[in-house]
Simulated scan of single mutants.
Amino acid sequence: MTDDHGSADAAEPAGPVSREDVVSESPFTLPGFFDALEAGRLLAAECRDCEAVLVPPRPACYECGSRRVAVAEQSKTGTVYSYTEVGRPPTAFEELAPLTLAVVELDSGGRLTGRVDAAYDDLEVGTPVTLTTRAPDFDEEAVLSYEADWPVHVFELRE
């Protein structure tokens, strides 16, 4: 969690992180990231050297290579950075076609790709959105077994 100044709370993991610390429950893994998301928390790693925000968290910064990262809760609001429409999505989502997908720049500076609950024609770069989570809404046989219980993150338009 972050304080009013956006700095990482001491309760969250901070790097450098050893290999032994990166277990499935760790927020530095996708299962750990999605467990936090299901609990209503959007987590990122914040690099202490270059200040990059990495969503989902990673144990090393992809901007500068530093392993001095700290996990911190992020804002769920942001703006559309880029977007596209997918007419033929993967099998798990084919009933939802066409899908609108976007890269969203979060207010905290990180970027997260996700589905947008809006038509392609209703978006433009800079459209404000909010991240929500939903129970999986696809055929569990169409996804990898470990993904079947992960919440689906969806961006919704905001005023």
Rank of each mutant, 00 (worst) to 15 (best):
Q74E: 11
Q74T: 03
Q74A: 05
S75W: 03
S75K: 03
S75C: 04
S75R: 13
K76H: 14
K76N: 02
K76I: 12
K76V: 12
T77E: 11
T77N: 07
T77R: 14
T77P: 01
G78E: 02
G78Q: 01
G78P: 08
G78K: 00
G78C: 01
T79M: 08
T79W: 06
T79K: 14
T79Y: 05
V80T: 02
V80N: 00
S82T: 13
S82L: 09
S82Q: 06
S82V: 00
Y83I: 11
T84L: 12
T84K: 01
T84P: 01
T84E: 12
E85L: 13
E85I: 14
V86M: 09
G87Q: 15
G87E: 15
G87W: 14
G87A: 09
G87V: 10
R88P: 02
P89Y: 07
P89V: 07
P90T: 01
P90D: 08
T91C: 08
T91L: 15
T91I: 12
T91G: 12
T91P: 10
A92H: 09
A92W: 03
A92R: 04
F93N: 05
F93I: 11
F93R: 10
E94I: 11
E94L: 14
E94F: 07
E95P: 10
E95W: 08
E95Y: 07
E95I: 03
L96F: 15
L96K: 15
L96V: 13
A97F: 09
A97L: 05
A97S: 11
A97E: 06
A97C: 02
A97Q: 08
P98H: 09
P98L: 06
P98S: 05
L99C: 06
L99N: 07
L99G: 03
T100I: 10
A102L: 01
A102F: 06
A102Y: 05
V103I: 13
V103N: 00
V103W: 00
V104M: 03
V104N: 04
E105C: 00
L106G: 04
L106H: 04
D107M: 07
D107K: 02
S108V: 06
S108E: 14
S108L: 02
S108F: 09
S108R: 02
S108A: 13
G109I: 11
G110D: 13
R111E: 07
R111N: 02
R111C: 02
R111W: 01
L112F: 11
L112S: 07
L112N: 09
T113Q: 12
T113N: 11
T113A: 12
